[in-house]
Computed example of a mutant assay.
Amino acid sequence: MAGARSPASLHDVELAALAASGDRPAFGELVRRHGSTVRGLLRRMGAEPSLADDLAQDAFLVAFERIAEFRGEGAFSAWVRKIAARLYVRRWRRDARFDLDMEIADEGHGDEGSAADRIDLDEALKALSPAERVCVSLCYGAGVSHAEAAEALNVPLGTVKSHVKRGLDKLRARLAPGVGAQGGAEGSRGHG
């Protein structure tokens, strides 16, 4: 029996189908379910909280306009995160004061600051360069491929791969157990 089930009891695919047929409360439920995830991704990418809120709202507006394109082949949250990430990248590219290609040439040595023993992912991401943070967040937070990230950023694929590799190496080093407490030898030979 189809009955009048509440939007909260429906699966995302069902809600998207209802939203595509004009059911605004169904789309509202999707926003309630996934809004904080989208805002969190945008913050991890480097957006200030107010910008993350604005871009998340814009992403859901785009998603609402394109809801008929969502076929349920993947998670709705992944679909809307990709939309949000692309909006952030457009904004970031427009506001950027540096060129990703130039940044690779300028990097000679990594960040070596003394980090606290306990550091969370958000803090670790803040330690990355803006280019590394965007590339890592796009490829691992928003789930876009390296090629899609390169296209979105309008840079060569190798540039994206370099930023992702360097960013992941820095994250691993920052998040490794015991890193930062001893200060001293942080060389590439020993661990601990």
Score class of each variant (00 low, 15 high):
191 H>E: 13
124 A>D: 10
94 R>Y: 14
177 P>A: 15
192 G>Q: 13
60 F>M: 03
38 V>H: 03
160 V>D: 01
30 L>G: 09
185 A>P: 12
118 R>T: 10
94 R>P: 05
100 L>H: 02
77 S>E: 01
78 A>M: 01
53 D>Y: 05
188 S>Q: 15
148 E>I: 00
186 E>G: 15
26 A>H: 02
23 D>Q: 06
19 A>R: 03
100 L>W: 06
99 D>P: 02
159 T>N: 07
25 P>N: 12
154 N>I: 13
32 R>Y: 13
156 P>Q: 09
66 R>I: 01
170 K>F: 06
128 L>P: 02
102 M>G: 08
42 L>A: 06
50 S>K: 05
78 A>N: 06
178 G>S: 12
186 E>A: 14
72 G>E: 10
95 D>H: 09
172 R>N: 13
162 S>I: 07
77 S>F: 00
111 D>C: 11
158 G>S: 12
151 E>I: 04
37 T>F: 02
165 K>Q: 09
74 G>C: 03
10 L>G: 01
102 M>E: 14
94 R>I: 05
182 Q>W: 07
134 V>N: 02
134 V>R: 03
168 L>G: 07
102 M>R: 15
88 Y>G: 00
100 L>I: 04
5 R>W: 13
186 E>S: 14
164 V>C: 02
47 A>F: 00
150 A>M: 01
102 M>P: 00
190 G>L: 12
56 A>G: 11
183 G>I: 10
187 G>E: 14
42 L>P: 02
46 G>R: 13
162 S>W: 04
128 L>V: 11
50 S>I: 06
150 A>E: 02
75 A>E: 03
110 G>P: 07
112 E>K: 07
58 D>R: 09
29 E>V: 11
11 H>A: 08
53 D>L: 08
120 D>M: 03
113 G>T: 15
116 A>G: 14
176 A>C: 14
172 R>L: 15
47 A>E: 04
28 G>V: 04
141 G>S: 09
31 V>H: 06
50 S>Q: 07
91 R>P: 04
175 L>M: 09
173 A>E: 15
171 L>N: 06
117 D>H: 06
70 F>C: 05
128 L>N: 08
139 C>L: 05
52 A>N: 07
118 R>Q: 10
7 P>D: 12
168 L>F: 10
152 A>C: 09
91 R>D: 10
53 D>T: 10
19 A>T: 05
23 D>C: 10
99 D>E: 13
